[in-house]
């Protein structure tokens, strides 16, 4: 078993703090004046209808997109100074799964940040990547071309890649979208393990019926911030209807 040096996060600062964030694509505003704070060691669901700006929120947090106003702080600093503590799971549909590469190779990409320029992944990186694949139950598929994996297996490869990053804060974009039951259970178990190890997970989520089961806190979003806080307090019929505009099949606590 190879143990990585634990990446230490600066103590005392919130993993994620968003202040008055406004973002737009050209003239089209997508997020308005969004503010919230995520405490450490929590599983946080980001919930809202299609086009609510959930993916955009992650992009702005990671500095991939510049906000029109406001800012996001990660462990109390701008993202550029905190990225080594952040792991990212993009939406599965955002890449071409027909790309000529295999599962192990994709997971090793999670180690590129630590490798830096010029250095290539070697045996050590392969072993770490294999361990990460094992954690998501995918070690037997290490050498499988990625197009030959099912949607759920592809999602688990992405999660393994994020595990390889050994981050303190994980940003995940719809990891539960279109996965089989087995993958769903594997992801839930993984989220709980991360929480036990004191990691913070911010997870864009689309399935209202599982929000209370999977998450400690929820961010309800629809362009504007509708509500944010502990699931029991905030995930109410009233708030969900405010986010989705009208009646929805609701299985929450309130």
């Amino acid at each position: 078993m190879i143990h990585l040096k634990e990446t230490e996060a600066p103590p005392g600062a919130f993993p994620l703090e968003v202040r008055g964030l406004t973002a737009a694509y050209r003239e089209k505003p997508v997020l308005w004046d969004v503010s919230f704070t995520i405490p450490e060691g929590q599983l946080v669901g980001v919930v809202g209808p299609n086009g609510a700006g959930k993916t955009t929120l992650l992009k702005v947090v990671m500095g991939v997109m510049r906000p029109a106003a406001g800012r996001a702080l990660v462990f109390g600093r701008p993202f550029e100074k905190a990225r080594r503590w952040v792991g990212y799971v993009p939406q599965r549909g955002s890449v071409d799964w027909d790309f000529p590469t295999d599962a192990l190779d994709v997971v090793m990409m999670g180690l590129y940040g630590r490798l830096g320029w010029l250095r290539r992944p070697g045996r050590r990186e392969r072993e770490i990547a294999l361990q990460c694949l094992e954690k998501v139950g995918m070690s037997e598929f290490a050498r499988r071309q990625i197009s030959q994996l099912s949607g759920g297996q592809q999602q688990r490869v992405f999660l393994a890649r994020a595990l390889a990053q050994d981050a303190r804060l994980y940003l995940m974009d719809e990891p539960f979208a279109g996965v089989d039951y087995r993958t769903e259970r594997a992801i839930v178990a993984l989220l709980r393990e991360l929480k036990e190890r004191g990691r913070t997970v911010v997870c864009v989520h689309h399935d209202l019926s599982t929000v209370t089961e999977y998450f400690d806190r929820v961010v309800l979003l629809n362009g504007r911030l509708i509500a944010e806080g502990p699931v029991q307090e905030v995930f109410t019929r009233e708030n969900v209807e405010a986010a989705y505009g009208g009646s929805v099949a609701f299985a929450g606590g309130g």
Binding site: Y88, S94, M109
Partner: peptide, 22 residues
């Protein structure tokens, strides 16, 4: 040859590459 790993990442998953700081 020098930037093979970076170009591969760029071609496969540019959003992830950006999150790593490339």
């Amino acid at each position: 040859a020098v930037l093979f790993k970076e170009f591969k990442l760029l071609a496969f998953d540019p959003a992830f590459a950006a999150s790593l700081g490339y």
